[in-house]
Amino acid sequence: MFSGFMVNAWEVGTMVAVVGGVVGFFVVLRGSAFPAHAIPNGAFAGAAGANLLAINPLIGLGVFSFGAALGIGALSRRGRSDAVTALALVMMLALGAAFLSLSTQYEPQIFSLLFGEILGVSSSEILPVVALGAVCIVAVAVLYRPLMLTSIAPDIAAARGLRPQRFEIAFLIVIACATTMTVPVVGALLIFTLMLGPSAAAQCFTNRAGRAMAGSVAIALVTIWLALACAYESNWPVGFYVSVLSAASYGIGRGYAAWHTRRQVRATRESLRRVALTN
C-alpha cells in the first residue's frame, strides 16, 4: 500500500488535496461551484484535441481551461454568468466529442480524464503537478485580502478601486491552473469534489476565515487519504470514494452547525428563564 506506484498516488493526492482545500475555500465563499465544475469537466476536450494532434495533453488542457476561464469571464460581463458558464461547458464538451470521433482510441481515455486514474500516476507526472499546485497556492496567497473583500462586499471593494470583474477573472484563472494541474492525473471529478465538500464543511465549524481555510485543507487531506486506502483495498474507483466522503464531510458540517445553533438557542432561553425567575 505504501510502495511502488502507490507512493506516487499518495504524493499527488496530498498535493491535490492542499490545492483543492485552498482554492475551494474561495469557490464556496464566492458561490463559484459551477465554474469549478465546468472548467475541469470541459477541459478534457483539450486533452482529446492534443491527443489528436499528437502533442502533450497538458498543453491541450492548459489552452482549454485558460480559454474557458477567460471566455466565461468576458462573456459574463454582458450576460447571465450561469448561462454563459453552461454554454461554455457544452461547447467544450461538444468539441471533445468531435475530437474523440476523429481519433481511433477513446473509451478508456475518456474514463480516466473524467474520473481519474490516480493509481497509475508515473513519477514523471509529479513534477508538473507540484509546480502548478505551488502556482495556485501562491496566487491565492497574493490575492487573499482583495479577493476576500470582493467576494463578500463587491460594492465596497469597487469603491476602493478593486474591480470585482477583474478579480472574478483572476479567480477563474486560478481554477484553470488547478484544473490543468490535476485533470491529467486525477481526473475532473476528483478536483471538483475536493474543492466543494471539504471547504463547505470547514465553513460550518468556525467563524474565522483563516481557520476555515486551514480546516478545508485538513478535511480534504483526510478525504483523499481515506479514499486512496479504500480504493486500494476494494479496487473501486478513487473518484467514487472521494466524492462520497466529501459529501459526507459536508453533511457532518451541516449537522454540527444545526446542533451548535440549537444549543445556543437553548442556552439563551435558559438564561432568559433564569432572569425571569430572579425577578
Binding site: 465563499l29 485580502r145 482583495p146 473583500l149 476602493r160 474565522r208 476565515a209
Partner: peptide
C-alpha cells in the same frame, strides 16, 4: 460566510494589499 465582524473591520485596513 465564515467572517467575524471584527475581521471585516480589519479588512478595511488592508483589503487593497496583495499578499
Amino acid at each position: 460566510v465564515p467572517m467575524r465582524a471584527r475581521d471585516f473591520v480589519a479588512l478595511g485596513l488592508d483589503a487593497h494589499r496583495y499578499g
